[in-house]
Design a protein around this nucleic acid. Structure first.
Lengths: 250, 250
DNA sequence: AAGTGGTCTAGACCACCAT
DNA sequence: TGGTGGTCTAGACCACTTA
């Protein structure tokens, strides 16, 4: 034996990044659940044997990423995908005056199928792997405005049934979280303009060849794991897609 | 005289927010210019008579807002709206394969006019106030893809001339910054689908009534001061609008 | 009153860059 | 080599929530 003092092996220098990684691991494992408080910073500093400042820096980043939520005097909580939060973050369709409304969702189709090549790539599964295909119609102010065509991996959502969609007051991302423990934390979207085909025209009650907005989304969970592909087809006669570029808080 | 010890008047509690405010004031006044280094953290901690940790927290926020840029060993710099940065942040049109290209910009029209009511509201000026109207055509892969119709306040850009647009290798936001000291740091965009009218069809070389993407942008400088209105009309046959929702860095 | 997160300090040492 | 930002510590005190 010699005198060399081993410091903690820097799996991911710096130290606060390693702490962050371990906190993420607790979230992914489901040890700390959405809506629940995580241990106090003091306790975490003892558990991880680092100073409280280091814990705070790790939590700072997770808060900035909207994965944790701090509440002074109460504690630090795992972000819940409650209705408002999901609406705020992932639903970007607003009225022409900028107002945001809750969409009324109705299930239009629910089928099982196999992943096409491009879908498989985006979802990180094999071509031909079993998937669910879900079509929702979203109404705003009593008129159909959005068609959502969703594709998800059957392996990731075992036992999902049509019934789970009926009568839900919340978004589908709440369902992912509550029933399958999958949290959507990030999404990429690509938008283009298309002309309504006869089916879209019928569902959205517009004339064929009307201009529609086509949004292709890939939604990700922690660690950039892809969870869902969604094609939204939007009538922008009375609504618009809202995008904010840059610069957090004031 | 009594014994009461006055602490620094908290113009904006907490202390690091006040420090941040004062740093912002230096930036807005032009005392610290884009591309230049600001004083070292050690010097700032002496100047403001606070600990270096407090300075760091103030700078942390400005870095998160992309207003300052830290470089270890070199210093902290005022963000420059260099070509890449502006392209990265404010140009959201990508190829169908996700690749980003530099657009080739050509000036199509440059006129003086008066602000319409809605324009005046968005720009924070009076209705009928003098404005510049600029129309640019942007080419990607040698084909016209985007029509940009820009409206800016003449009062904010005194002496702007058509010539300043010709032969510029950079974006118009570089021009705002270099010639007028106005930094665009944030933008709001609203998107909808429209049909090409005859003029758009001609400029973008598509058939009339083709579907086009219509982007209405308001760009802001520091302190949410509106600087520019821009209507972009995009042919999304071969390109798309890219939107990333949520979650900074990995 | 006890417990939480929020702010702030005054240092130490490290990693990186310029010269 | 000297100066910069980057990390980390071990506290102190404050502001807020809950009971």
């Amino acid at each position: 034996m010699n005198d060399i003092q081993f410091t903690a092996i820097p799996l991911q220098n710096p130290l606060y990044k390693e702490v962050k990684r371990q906190i993420m691991a607790e979230l992914i494992s489901g040890e700390w659940k959405p809506g629940n408080a995580i241990p106090a910073e003091k306790r975490l500093s003892e558990r991880f044997a680092v100073s409280i400042g280091t814990i705070r820096k790790a939590i700072d980043e997770l808060v900035a990423e909207n994965i944790l939520i701090r509440q002074q005097g109460r504690g630090t909580f795992v972000a819940t995908h409650n209705r408002d939060r999901l609406l705020f973050y992932f639903f970007h369709i607003v009225g022409h005056d900028g107002t945001k409304q809750y969409p009324v969702v109705s299930l239009n189709a629910f089928t099982k199928g196999k992943a096409e090549a491009d879908e498989a790539v985006k979802l990180g599964i094999h071509r031909g792997a079993p998937v669910f295909r879900i079509r929702n119609i979203l109404k705003l102010a009593n008129a159909p405005v959005i068609i959502d065509d969703i594709v998800i991996d059957q392996g990731r959502f075992p036992g999902l049934t049509e019934k789970q969609f009926t009568g839900r007051p919340n978004t589908i991302y709440n369902l992912y979280q509550d029933a399958f423990g999958i949290s959507v934390v990030r999404a990429q979207e690509r938008l283009r303009a298309i002309l309504a085909d006869t089916q879209n025209a019928r569902l959205l009650r517009v004339a064929p060849k009307s201009p529609l907005l086509r949004i292709a989304r890939v939604a990700f969970s922690y660690r950039d794991v892809p969870v869902e592909i969604r094609i939204s087809t939007v009538n922008t006669e009375r609504h618009e897609y809202w995008s904010e570029i840059q610069n957090m808080e004031r």
